[in-house]
Structure formats: C-alpha cells, structure tokens
C-alpha cells in the first residue's frame, strides 16, 4: 500500500504545471524515503529531477510498504489536479502492484471530498546516473528575476551566454536582429534573503544554453522565492527550485558548445 497525504495540493499542482509541457509521461518512484521523479525531454537535452522527502512537514501522512513505480501521463494528472481547490489536502493512493492511482481531495472544512482514479502506464524511461559533484559556480537569485531575464533575452535570440565571475553574473544574448546583456551584481546589502543575488565562485564559467528550455524551466517559479544555478565549464547547468517542507525540483540542461 502506498498513501501520501500532502497538506497543500497547490504544491503538487505547481510541480505538474511546470513539467507537463516538456515531459509528457513520467514515472513517480515511491519508496519509504519519499517520492522521486526523473525524466528527460524527447530530445535528451533537458532532464527534470523531483525529490519529495517523506520525513518533511509537507506530508501529513506517508506510507509506502514496498517500492512502486507509478507511470503517469502528466497532462492527465494536470487535468485531475485542476479539480482540486488550492487549499485542499490531497492524498495519493495506490496498491502494491498498482494499475490505478487514486487522488482524494479534502476541502479545508472537510465538507467536500472528491475522489478520482487514473489508469497507470508502463513507461520505458531511460534513467541517467547523475553524480554529486562540486560546481565551479553557484548563483542564488530571486526566481522571478531569473524568469524575467530568460523572458527578456528570448525576444532577441535562441541562446543565452551565462558568464559567472567574482563581481556577479552576466546574461547575454546575440541574435540576428540585435543583442542584449543583463548584469547582476552580488547584493549582500538587501534586507530580505530571498531578494539577494549571491555568487559562490571557485572558478569563473562562461557557458551558453538554449533559452527555449530555460524559459520552460521558469514555469516552476511560483514553487520557490529563490532559484539556484550551478555551473561548471562544459557540463550541464543545474537549475534548482527548493520546495519548502518537501524537497526540491531540479532541471539539468546540456550546454551549447563550439562544434
């Protein structure tokens, strides 16, 4: 038996909304330690990795008697979650050898209980081993600032060059019709921690990435006030949105490099 009771259905809604356009079908791997999801886009350029820990406060109850994989169409899951109120408590339930995933939405005042079942799918997805490594540079910034930068620069070109150095981080685009550059300086003087831009730098990095994917990742902006960009030269960037009381959602994007 698998049963996970999440206090805020809005968190699950935001996760699925941020994934469903790039990642059509995905396996939720459930174990006693929590729920993980890894999936690649069809071109194998971008990857998402979701971790929701069972011992965090976001779950009111969590039970997973044996490891199970729940293969779900994310478009369908998005439709089901639209049936939940934002303040509803959502319970996910499945048997040990499941064909069906059940969603139960309880309203705050317990006056309305709704239940939806969806059929599970066999998804043959290729899992990649992602090593824990130290990155040359980790930029922490407000998530809405990163969203604005990606949106602004995508009007002029297809790829952004991210340049991390000891003064801060530069984002540059160069297209056929024009170019643009946004410089962010470290802002340690800002009062609120979530408004700060910080750059932890071991080595400077200059790397280009496709804006199409970065813009897609920023659909997760509402999950978190801050976003962390981890970069090392000639390796994929990690774009991480911490999820309070749950874990995190990470996106990996392969760089564009000189041919």
């Amino acid at each position: 038996m698998f049963e996970a009771k999440m206090l805020q259905s809005s968190v699950l809604k935001k996760i699925i909304e941020s994934l469903k356009d790039l990642f059509a079908d995905a396996n939720f791997d459930c174990s006693s330690s929590g729920i993980t999801l890894q999936d690649m886009d069809s071109s194998h350029v971008a990857l998402c990795y979701l971790k929701l820990r069972s011992d965090e406060e976001g779950f009111e109850d969590y039970r997973c008697d044996r490891n199970i994989t729940l293969g779900v169409n994310l478009g369908l899951m998005s439709k089901i979650l639209k049936c939940a109120g934002n303040d509803d408590v959502v319970t996910l339930r499945a048997e040990d050898e499941p064909n069906i995933l059940t969603f139960i939405f309880d309203s705050k005042n317990s006056e309305r209980v709704s239940k939806y079942d969806i059929k599970l799918m066999e998804i043959d997805s290729e899992l990649l081993g992602i090593p824990d490594t130290d990155y040359s540079c980790v930029v922490k910034m407000p998530s809405h600032e990163f969203q604005r930068i990606c949106s602004n620069l995508s009007q002029l070109g297809d790829s952004v060059t991210i340049d991390c150095h000891k003064e801060g981080v530069d984002f540059k685009v160069a297209g056929e019709q024009g170019s643009g550059a946004i410089k962010l300086k470290q802002t340690t003087s800002v009062d609120k921690e979530e408004d700060q831009v910080t750059v932890q730098l071991n080595e400077p990095v200059t790397q280009s990435f496709a804006l199409k994917f970065l813009c897609a990742f920023t659909k997760a902006t509402s999950l978190s006030d801050t976003v962390n960009l981890s970069l090392t030269q000639d390796t994929p960037v990690v774009v991480e949105y911490p999820i309070a009381q749950h874990g995190y959602l990470r996106f990996y994007l392969a760089p564009k490099i000189e041919e």
Partner: peptide, 14 residues
C-alpha cells in the same frame, strides 16, 4: 558555431 549537446554525453545510463 555553437551546437546543442545531449545529456547522454555527460551522464551515463543507470
């Protein structure tokens, strides 16, 4: 010219 790489060239299959 900058070309798009694939994640498979950085991470190995599990």
């Amino acid at each position: 010219v900058k070309g798009q790489t694939s994640l498979n060239s950085f991470f190995s299959k599990k």
